[in-house]
Amino acid sequence: MTPVLSVRNLKVEFPTRRGVLTAIDDVSFDIAPGEVLGVVGESGAGKSITGTAVIGLIEPPGRIAGGEVLLRGQRIDNLPPEQMRKIRGKRIGMVFQDPLTSLNPLYRIGYQLVETIRTHSSLSESAARKKALSLLEEVGIPAPDTRIDAYPHQFSGGMRQRVVLALALAAEPELVIADEPTTALDVSVQAQIIALLKRLCAQHGAAVMLITHDMGVIAETADRVAVMYAGRIAEIGPVREVIKAPLHPYTKGLMGSIPSLAHDSDRLVQIPGSMPRLTAIPSGCPFHPRCPRAFVPCPTFRPELQPEQSSQVACWLYHPFPVTAAAL
């Protein structure tokens, strides 16, 4: 079965006057139909840029410098902007951290929904409005027939994000890209939106790329998770495996550094240092200066993502390292 989204060796660069910065380097992953792939990482890991690259919205002078993005086997990274605009909204729905970036404050939400539906389908005005109403009901807006004519500022943060979800799903997309959809919300509302996102995408059969820094959200929502570090994928695998038995030393450190509700811990696991800036990504494995288990090949040779148990991991601990490295 063809994956809904297939990213192959994606490379994103930002030319600056101090040289070309590589924000994403050789990132590959697939999302199967109906699957939720979590993309997790700390700030600077490149998770959001990966999402923006997929939907072709990298801001110039940034550019995709290599690799390809395939939607149902069709290449979309080299499409002209006009065609890409049609794909966004129709085949790929988007949800961002701040609902106000997706909603135009000057128009009633009903109008925005109807416009989106009609742009991507041949429905009549009244049929589109009927569909908008049912979408609003589906995302849990109380009294949708009166709220449909309200403006975005008349909704609370959680309700706005529900409207954005309705908007993202309006054209029945095959893929939804959600970039930190719950970060701006309160804990209690966050749980509602996560549950809603999961239920809706299952019902509509949409695959989801869920980008977040919150491992808890990933644990609740995703089927598989990709852990990013310094513009590369360190580890990708089924959520349960990655959380319970992480392979990559970075993932291990990351999991240990999250305080838990379930048990007391005297000290959190601490990864020394911080995420490298794009201007100074270390050679070899980018994590090696912070890695407690770094050894001979790590500073020199870059590990590729290779299968290990049910996951894939980019770490020399799990693969035979190059012979030339042993000679050093």
């Binding site: 609370s156 943060g157 959680g158 309700m159 309160d186 804990v187 209690s188 509302v189 966050q190 749980a191 509602q192 996560i194 549950a195 919150d214 491992m215 808890g216 959200v217 644990a219 609740e220 349960r240 959380i243 999991m255 999250i258 838990s260 509700l261 379930a262 048990h263």
Partner: peptide
């Protein structure tokens, strides 16, 4: 109780969660 129930947590996935109602 509601707050504790709403927090996504690594070790508590799969537990039955009561749906949380409304906003502040």
């Amino acid at each position: 109780r509601m707050l504790l129930d709403a927090v996504p947590d690594l070790d508590l996935t799969g537990r039955k969660r009561k749906p949380v109602e409304g906003e502040v």
